[in-house]
Amino acid sequence: MKQQKILFIGDSITASGKREDPEKIGVSYVRIIHDYLLTTYPEKVYNIVNKGISGNRITDLAARWQKDVIEHNPDYLSISIGINDVWRQLDRPEIEQITVEKFEQVYKELLTKVKEHTNAHIIIMEPTVIEEKLQAPGNQLLKEYVKVVNDMSKQFEATLVPTHQAFVKYLEGNKGYNLTTDGVHMNSAGNMLMATTWLKAVEEQLK
Rank of each mutant, 00 (worst) to 15 (best):
N47F: 09
N47R: 13
I48H: 04
V49G: 03
V49S: 08
K51R: 15
I53V: 15
S54H: 09
G55D: 11
G55M: 09
N56L: 05
R57N: 08
R57W: 01
R57C: 08
R57H: 10
D60W: 03
W65T: 06
Q66S: 11
Q66A: 11
K67Y: 10
K67G: 05
K67N: 12
D68R: 10
D68H: 11
N73K: 12
D75R: 09
Y76G: 14
L77D: 05
L77E: 02
S78C: 13
S80V: 08
I83K: 02
N84E: 10
D85G: 03
R88E: 10
R88K: 15
Q89D: 07
L90T: 10
E94L: 11
I95L: 12
I95V: 15
E96A: 12
Q97A: 12
I98A: 03
I98W: 05
V100F: 10
K102F: 05
E104W: 04
E104T: 13
E104P: 01
Q105Y: 10
V106S: 02
Y107P: 01
K108W: 05
T112D: 15
T112F: 12
K113S: 14
K113A: 12
V114E: 02
K115F: 02
E116F: 00
N119H: 14
N119E: 14
H121A: 13
H121Y: 05
I122C: 04
I122K: 01
I123A: 08
I124K: 02
M125D: 07
M125A: 12
E126Y: 06
P127F: 04
P127H: 08
P127C: 09
T128R: 03
T128C: 02
T128G: 00
V129D: 00
V129Q: 07
V129G: 01
I130L: 14
L134G: 03
L134A: 10
P137H: 04
N139R: 06
N139S: 12
Q140E: 13
L141I: 09
L142N: 10
K143Q: 15
E144W: 07
E144T: 13
V146S: 01
V146I: 15
V148S: 08
D151E: 14
M152P: 07
M152Y: 06
S153L: 07
S153R: 05
K154W: 09
Q155F: 11
F156I: 02
E157P: 00
A158M: 05
A158R: 01
L160C: 09
V161H: 03
V161F: 03
T163P: 00
T163K: 04
T163D: 01
Q165P: 05
F167G: 00
F167D: 03
F167C: 04
V168W: 02
K169H: 14
Y170L: 06
Y170V: 03
L171H: 01
N174W: 01
K175Q: 12
K175A: 06
G176N: 10
G176C: 08
Y177G: 03
Y177E: 15
L179Y: 01
L179I: 06
L179Q: 01
L179S: 01
T180K: 10
T180C: 09
D182S: 14
D182K: 08
G183P: 04
V184Y: 02
H185V: 13
H185C: 12
N187H: 13
S188H: 10
G190R: 04
G190D: 02
N191K: 05
L193E: 00
A195M: 11
